[in-house]
Design a protein around this nucleic acid. Structure first.
Lengths: 330, 330
DNA sequence: CTGTTAGCGCTTTCAG
DNA sequence: CTGAAAGCGCTAACAG
C-alpha cells in the first residue's frame, strides 16, 4: 500500500506538499500539482483515512441510536439522517441497541473514545433511564416527546392525538377505545394525554378500561382487538397509537365478525406507506419521518460546528389523513 | 483529554504497561493493574480509538451497501448483520446509496481508504453495473441471485417462485398474471424464470402480456392491478414478486370491484410482518431476512480472518406460507 | 512482568 | 509556494 512518503519520493516533492495538494490544491503550483497527481496515479495511492482522522482528531462520523432498525418508522428517520450526513461528508454508524441499555452504553461511549463526533437518539427520552443528554457528548433526540431535555426534534404528539380523537367524537363516537404503546413509553404518555383532552372537551369521562396496552407491534394490536370484542359494551371506535397495531386490530376485529369501518372505526398513527394500500385504508396521523431525520441531522451538525443554534427544539408539522377506516357509528 | 501518557505519569508505570493492562490484563501484575486502574479512574481516561485503529491498521468496521434503508426487507437483513457484527466487535457503517452508483462508489472506496474492512452488498449483482466483487476488497453479496460472482448468501428464488406458481396451478388457475420488479432486476429475472418453469411443467404457454412490470413499490402494484382489471380476459390469479406490490394490488382489485380471493387470488414474496395482518392475509414466500443478514456477516468475518471458508455461496431455506389470499378459481 | 524505543501515515507549524 | 521536522496517541518489539 502506497503511502504519502511514496508519493513524495516518486514526485520528488515533500510530504507536506503532497498533503497540501490533496487538501488545498490551489495552494500548490500547477506544475507541482500535476507532478503530484501523476505520482498518485502511478502508485495508485489512496490516503489512509484512519491516519487522517487520527491526526485531525475528528472522526466525521455520527452514530444513530435506534431501538430497532427493522421498524419502518425508524428506518425512514435514518434515511433522512443519511441524506444530510452524506451531504456534510459524515458517515453514519448504525447503533441498533435492540432495546438494551448495555448496547446503548457502548454506542454512547463511541463518542468518548473519538469513534464518533455526535449522536442522534431515536429512543424517546425517559427520565431515570436516559444516557443522553450527557455532558461532553453532542446529541439530539429525534422523535422526542414533551419535556425532553436537550436538543430535540419531534411533532406535537399531544395535539395530534387530540385531533384524531376530536374527529372521532365529531363523527359521533362516544365510546372510543385506545390501543396504546407500553404504558410508560413517552409517546404513549403524550398521545394518551391528547386523547384525554379531547374527551374532556367533549364532556366524556375517561374510562381506563377502554385503554388496552400494546407495544407498538402487530400482534399486540391483534390481541387488543380481541379483548375489545369481548367487552360487554364494545367501543364504536379505536384510537391506535401506531399504524401497525391499527392494521392488526382491523384484522382482529374482522376475525371476530366486526367489520371496519361499518361496525367499528379504527385510526392509526405514523402513516406508514402500507396504510394507504391496506384494506380498508387507514385514517391516521402522518408523521414526517424523513424530515424528522433530516432536521435532527442538521441540528446535530449545527451543534457540532459550535454555532450555537437559535432553536434547539424543533416541532415539525404533522398531517391528519382521513381515509376509509373511519365513519360515524351505526 | 487524558492520554495514555497521563495515565503512565499518574501511575508511575510506562505507557507500554498501561497499554498491556488494557489489552491483556492478565499479563500485568495484579498490583500494577490496580495502580493502572486507579489512575485511569482518577483521570477519567478513555483510550483514543482513532489512534488505536490507526496504529493497528484495522478499522473493525464494515459497510453495508443498501439501495434503500426504508425498505423493510433490507432493514431486516441489516438487523441480522448488526447482531453478528456487534458480537464480533465490529461497527456497521450505513451505506444508503439511494440507488445511485456514485454513492456506491464512495462507500466502496471506504475500504480502500481503510475506513472499513469489508462490505456487505444488499444490491443484487447485475453484470455490467457492479462495483463488487472487486480485487482487494473483501465483500459478500447478501440476498443475491443465480450466477452472482463472489461470496454470496441467498434463497433459491427460481425454485421458490416455481413453487408458488405450482401451487396456484394445482388450485386450478390457468391464467396467472405476474407483477414483476423492474424487468432487468436480477430478482425479477430469477423469479420470472421460476414462473415460466412452473407453467411449462403444466403445459401452459407463457403469455408475455400477463407480465406487468412494477418496481417493488406499492404504487406499482396498484397500477398493475388496475391494468389487469382492464384486460378482456382477467387472470384468475396474480403472482406478485413482493408483498408490497401484492398488498397494493389487492387494494387495486378491490377498488375495481374484484374481491380477493373470491374473484382473484394474489400471492406475495418476502413475508413482511404486515402480510400476516393485512386483509386478507397474504399467501407468500417467507424469506429469512434476518438470517440472510447474519449469514452474510458471518461469511464476511470468515473472509476477513483469512480462514478460507469452505462454502462461499450459501443458499438458505425459504418457506412457502399459505394464507387467505389464494383459493381455487370460480 | 516492565520499561524503552521506534514508529504507524498524516498534518502542521515554521523557516526559507 | 515548498521543505524540514515534530508529533498526534497508541502498540509492539526488544531488552532487561
Amino acid at each position: 500500500m502506497a503511502t504519502i512518503r511514496d508519493v513524495s519520493r516518486e514526485s520528488g516533492l515533500s510530504t507536506g506538499t503532497i498533503s497540501k495538494a490533496l487538501s488545498t490544491p490551489d495552494k500548490v503550483s500547477p506544475k507541482n500539482l500535476a507532478r503530484v497527481n501523476a505520482a498518485i496515479k502511478k502508485l495508485n495511492y489512496k490516503p489512509n483515512m484512519l491516519s487522517q482522522k487520527f491526526r485531525k482528531k475528528t472522526s466525521n462520523t455520527i452514530v444513530v441510536l435506534v431501538p430497532d432498525i427493522a421498524n419502518l418508522f425508524f428506518a425512514k428517520v435514518i434515511s433522512g439522517i443519511e441524506t444530510v450526513a452524506q451531504k456534510e461528508g459524515f458517515s453514519v454508524l448504525l447503533g441498533d441497541t435492540k432495546d438494551t441499555i448495555e448496547r446503548e452504553k457502548e454506542f454512547v461511549s463511541m463518542v468518548e473514545t473519538k469513534l464518533a463526533d455526535g449522536i442522534i437518539n431515536l429512543r424517546p427520552y425517559k427520565a431515570g433511564d436516559a444516557l443522553l443528554p450527557k455532558e461532553g457528548i453532542v446529541s439530539v433526540n429525534a422523535s422526542s416527546c414533551e419535556n425532553t431535555p436537550g436538543p430535540s426534534v419531534r411533532i406535537d404528539n399531544v395535539q395530534a392525538a387530540e385531533k384524531v380523537v376530536d374527529y372521532l367524537i365529531n363523527l359521533g363516537h362516544k365510546r372510543i377505545g385506545v390501543i396504546s404503546g407500553l404504558i410508560d413509553n413517552p409517546h404513549t404518555i403524550d398521545r394518551l394525554s391528547g386523547y384525554k383532552q379531547a374527551l374532556e372537551k367533549a364532556g366524556i369521562v375517561f374510562d381506563p378500561n377502554l385503554v388496552i396496552e400494546g407495544d407498538f407491534n402487530y400482534w399486540s394490536g391483534l390481541n387488543a382487538a380481541e379483548s375489545f370484542t369481548r367487552m360487554e359494551n364494545v367501543p364504536t371506535a379505536i384510537f391506535s397509537m401506531n399504524d401497525q397495531m391499527a392494521i392488526a386490530a382491523i384484522k382482529g376485529f374482522s376475525n371476530n365478525g366486526f367489520k371496519v369501518p361499518d361496525d367499528i372505526s379504527v385510526t392509526g398513527f405514523d402513516d406508514m406507506n402500507v396504510s394507504r394500500y391496506c384494506t380498508p385504508t387507514l385514517t391516521t396521523v402522518a408523521q414526517p419521518a424523513e424530515k424528522i431525520g433530516e432536521k435532527s441531522a442538521e441540528l446535530l451538525f449545527e451543534l457540532l460546528s459550535n454555532t450555537t443554534p437559535k432553536i434547539t427544539e424543533h416541532i415539525l408539522p404533522y398531517e391528519f389523513v382521513i381515509r376509509e377506516s373511519t365513519r360515524p357509528p351505526k
